[in-house]
């Protein structure tokens, strides 16, 4: 089945400050999109708004997953509908083992109609699957016994997000700087893993500053965000250009968006 995630004229504020000012983006299942842009342009906000973060108020626009109105759904319903966000800054949940967390999450995602208290995937079956996945991602099994993101290094957190992506197999995945905090080898491994898990099997929206993560995930579309809008969309060559030359051309071409971006950065600095 061909799934579509469609974002139309999305406006988002935090407090009363506008962050997203009319984002349009359509992702087909199987496609890979790169989302780039300077700091403070609204990339992470887009990811969190798609997931339904309570701190981000939608003041206009629509998000649809096929014919479902995503904005009407709670965050867990969005996850169960098949939308995934790999967090830039994942949260620690002390005392909860990664394996237990994932077993519950995997059950809920695979059985979207599961009621609270109903049986989880059998332990033995789940353990085997998790072990296989981890071996595939070259992760130590010990990882599963650690508490969720608790005391993880930056790199370990990102690996853990990729493991979750692998287990949950969403229809659409937004990867928010899944390469930040990783050294060159780790980025290459992450890039390979993401390709293996998601390439052509999901709709991928990869938010990144660097080209390494895209090495194994060549995007069909590259979007540039500035001042809360997607100002330009191109093919893989646009990503290459931005990696090489930075955002100077973009900033000059879209002075209004650049002004909005500067304003947002200034407000962030004072806040």
């Amino acid at each position: 089945m061909n799934h579509i995630l469609k974002i139309e004229d999305l406006h988002v504020t935090v407090g009363d400050k506008p962050i997203l000012r009319g984002v349009n983006l359509t992702i087909q299942h199987g496609e890979t999109h790169a989302l780039m842009g300077p700091n403070g342009s609204g990339k992470s906000t887009l990811g969190l708004a798609i997931m339904g973060h309570p701190g981000y108020e939608i003041t206009g626009g629509k998000i649809h997953l096929n014919d479902q109105d995503v904005l009407e759904m709670e965050a867990d319903e969005r996850a169960r509908a098949g939308i995934f966000l790999a967090f830039q800054r994942p949260m620690a949940i002390p005392g909860v083992k990664m394996a237990d967390f994932l077993r519950h999450a995997t059950t809920n995602i695979r059985r979207p109609d599961r009621k609270e208290g109903e049986e989880l995937i059998p332990m033995r079956e789940f353990r085997k699957e998790l072990k296989d996945r981890m071996a595939h991602l070259r992760m130590d099994v010990e990882f599963a016994r650690r508490y969720v993101n608790d005391g993880f290094s930056g790199g370990e957190m990102k690996r853990a997000e990729i493991l979750q992506l692998a287990m949950l197999q969403p229809k659409f995945a937004i990867l928010d700087e899944t390469d930040s905090g990783l050294d060159a080898d780790a980025v290459r491994l992450a890039s390979e893993s993401i390709a293996e898990i998601g390439h052509q099997k999901m709709g991928l929206l990869i938010i990144t500053h660097h080209d390494k993560l895209l090495e194994h995930n060549p995007p069909q579309f590259t979007h540039v965000m500035l001042g809360g809008r997607i100002v330009e969309t191109g093919g893989p060559e646009l990503a290459d250009e931005l990696h090489e030359n930075g955002y100077d051309r973009i900033r000059k071409t879209y002075p209004e968006a650049e002004a909005a971006n500067q304003e947002m950065l200034a407000e962030e600095a004072t806040a």
Binding site: D76, A79, H104, L168
Partner: peptide
Amino acid sequence: EQIFYARCRGFTRKEATRMIVSGFFQ
């Protein structure tokens, strides 16, 4: 933020709270 993170992984609010509380007692 912990609750939101868990909800993004398919946990209901109650399931998330219960998990965080039992983690606290772990």
